[in-house]
């Protein structure tokens, strides 16, 4: 599997660190972790995407699901330092303005 997903807890909130390639094969793993993490986070979910080498629409759809779930639960969902590959697919799918995007030095 060409993806590595780790979660880090801090004060009841979680950061998901994603590394590798997110596509139709690997996104179900990310989806599972993301939705579980949204449920158990106190009020903030951060998805670190700086080490993502490739992401397709199934990866974006997974992020959308995380955002929707967090919004329903009145929690904040943010993307941290998306890589060039992630920014490209967000831009091509016209969703770059839908997500809150932070850089490492402002998170």
């Amino acid at each position: 599997m060409s993806i590595d997903i780790q979660t880090v807890e801090q004060n009841g909130n979680y950061k998901i660190q994603v590394c590798g390639q997110v596509d139709l094969y690997t996104s179900p793993n990310l989806r599972k972790v993301m939705l579980e993490t949204v449920d158990k986070s106190k009020d903030l979910i951060t998805v670190q995407l700086s080490q993502v080498e490739y992401m397709d629409s199934s990866g974006v759809a997974t992020l959308v699901e995380g955002l929707r779930s967090a919004t329903k639960q009145k929690k904040t969902f943010q993307l941290l330092s998306p890589s060039h590959a992630v920014r490209k697919v967000l831009n091509l799918s016209r969703l770059e303005t839908v997500f809150t995007i932070k850089e490492d030095n402002e998170a």
Binding site: V60, V64, R68
Partner: peptide, 21 residues
């Protein structure tokens, strides 16, 4: 894909948009 917001956005149909762009 009009009026996309965190509450109205849907996680499907993105592939075709990317493909065409």
């Amino acid at each position: 894909r009009n009026d996309i917001t965190p509450t109205t956005i849907k996680p499907h149909g993105l592939g075709l948009i990317i493909l065409k762009r």
